[in-house]
């Protein structure tokens, strides 16, 4: 799958099962109490780049909620 196809698939244009259900894969996610994968993220405040590791290393525990406006 090309990068453009991946972006289009992830950012589906209509809420229909064949577009959103096929992406949900919570059962295959990183296991508890094992090192989790790190990813870059960008601060809304100033657009600067950071990553998950920088977030979780800043506190004893870090709560990460995933979501969107819609």
């Amino acid at each position: 799958m090309s990068a453009d196809d991946l972006i289009a698939r992830y950012n589906y244009d209509e809420f229909v099962p064949e577009k959103f259900e096929t992406q949900m894969s919570f059962g295959d996610t990183p296991p508890l109490d094992e090192p989790a994968p790190n990813f870059p993220l960008w601060r809304l405040e100033d657009g600067g780049e950071t990553d998950l590791a920088a977030l979780w290393s800043a506190n004893a525990y870090t709560v990460v909620e995933f979501g969107s406006f819609t």
């Binding site: 508890l32 109490d33 090192p35 989790a36 977030l55 979780w56 290393s57 525990y61 990460v64």
Partner: peptide, 8 residues
């Protein structure tokens, strides 16, 4: 929730 070592 992650701990400081990056483990969920």
């Amino acid at each position: 929730i992650f701990n400081r070592r990056g483990r969920p």
